[in-house]
């Protein structure tokens, strides 16, 4: 067991982390590169920067967008807050970073982390339930849309049990192994799935705006490529 744990916490974790970071950096780099290319080729270079920044900001803290489906929106919001804060600011995790790399930052009190973890687990279940109940999201839902929230909940459930041994009906080491392994797999999945929005999200409003900034001669060039120049309408 300790060998597996060592493997999961050591080489597997670092590989998964590197895969995630490099994958996201690649996606960020490609997106920024392509954004710059679209801008360079655009006929109209006058971007509504203020509107794009406002819209991006409003979705980063999307309280005013809750609207009619507020239970779903609230669940999603809570889920995201927990998923971002707990892995980064859990005292145990901060201590691991300090021990491993000698860097540290302020941690959340354990009671807050525990509360957030419980909220993430509840929100993950609620998200799946709400998706299955709401007609539109049920119609749109793919396998990954159901499985990802549930899979994200696995390291949170196992982490909670590790933090609170009295709640844990299983042995500590296997629980810890599930916690670390599921987290490793999750890190692998980030750049390969819609979870990549964790890096691309702040760019999406800009990306949508940029698409309307056509190159001045795109139409003519398409006609040329398709051999349709001079072709009557």
């Amino acid at each position: 067991m300790s060998t597996w744990l060592h493997l999961a916490r050591g080489p597997l974790f670092w590989t998964a982390l590197a895969f995630m970071v490099l994958g996201l950096v690649r996606q960020l780099g490609l997106t920024l590169w392509e954004t710059a290319r679209v801008y360079r080729r655009a006929g109209d270079k006058d971007l509504p920067v203020g509107r794009v920044v406002r819209e991006t900001g409003s979705w980063l803290v999307p309280v005013r967008h809750f609207g009619k489906r507020w239970p779903y929106s609230l669940t999603t919001f809570v889920f995201h807050v927990g998923v971002i804060l707990v892995p980064l600011l859990l005292a145990g995790h901060v201590e691991l970073w300090r021990a491993g790399l000698g860097i540290s930052w302020p941690a959340l009190p354990n009671v807050v982390s525990t509360t957030l973890t419980l909220l993430v687990i509840a929100a993950a279940l609620a998200l799946v339930l709400e998706r299955a109940i709401a007609r539109a999201s049920r119609a749109l839902g793919r396998f990954s849309d159901y499985s990802l929230p549930l899979f994200i909940a696995v390291p949170f459930v196992s982490g909670l049990l590790v933090m609170h041994p009295t709640w844990n009906p299983f042995a500590t080491d296997p629980t810890l192994l599930v916690h670390v392994l599921s987290a490793d797999v999750l890190l692998f999945l980030v750049p390969l799935t819609k979870l990549s929005h964790m890096i691309l999200f702040p760019l999406t409003q800009l990306v949508s705006e940029m698409a309307w900034h056509f190159p001045p001669d795109a139409g003519s060039r398409v006609a040329e490529t398709l051999g349709k120049e001079g072709e009557p309408i």
Partner: peptide, 22 residues
Amino acid sequence: HGSYNLALDTYARMSAKCGRCA
């Protein structure tokens, strides 16, 4: 030749199918 590649690439990766648009 157009400017759509960027948007399609981003949408294809990230689309969450939440159904809010409905």
